[in-house]
Amino acid sequence: MKIISNNSKTDKEDMRKIWEKIGDYFRANSIWMKWYCTGCGAIELPPTMTSRFDMERLGMGPMATPRQADVLLITGYLSSKTLRRIIYSYEQMQDPKYVVGFGSCTINGGIYYDSYATMKQLDNYLPVDLYIAGCMPRPEAVMNGFDTLISMIKKGEANGWKHYKENYDWYSRNQLHSLGEVYVKDEFHE
C-alpha cells in the first residue's frame, strides 16, 4: 500500500494533460464491466443492475467480451484454474482498464485460506484498483465501491494498468510461481 500525501496528489493531478482529464471524465462516467463470474459474488450483481439499485444510472453496464470492457470484476474466490482465464481476459482488455476485487476471498483467501486451489491475494497476480470487502458485499457496498472507483478514475488515481505494464516482470514471476504455467491446457486446447 502506497500512501500518497495530499500535496503529491495535487501535483500528480496537475501532471495530467488536458485531454487526459477529458478522457478520464468520459471513462469515469461510462464504465463497462467484464463480468467474469469467478465465484459466489456474481449473484450480487443482478440486484445491483436491475430496478432497485440500477447501476446504469452511473453509466455502468455489463459487456459481453473483454475487448469491449473497461473494468474486470473478480467476483469471489479465485481458483488457480480460473486465474489462467482471468489473465487471458485481462490482457485482452483495452487500456485504460481497471480491476475490482470482490469480497474477502480476493483480499486474503477468506474461508478458502487453506485450499490447495485458491489464490489468497489477488493483487499478486493482477493490479487491483479497488477492493470491496464483505463476504459477499451487499449491493449497497457494491454501489459504494463503484462510486469510489468513479471518483478514483476522475482524479486519475486508478493507474493499475500502468503499474502492470511497468512491473510486468514481478507480476509474471508471481503468476508463474503459483500456476507453473499461464497457458491454458485443457481438453479444448489440445
Partner: peptide
C-alpha cells in the same frame, strides 16, 4: 427503456459519453 423496467435510467447524454469513451481508449 429504463422507465419501462422501473429503473431510473442513465443520463440522456449517456450515449455520447459511451461513444467518446470508446474513442478515447486504445484498441488492438
Amino acid at each position: 427503456m429504463a422507465r419501462l423496467q422501473r429503473r431510473r435510467g442513465p443520463k440522456w447524454y449517456q450515449q455520447f459519453i459511451d461513444i467518446f469513451k470508446a474513442m478515447s481508449k486504445s484498441s488492438t
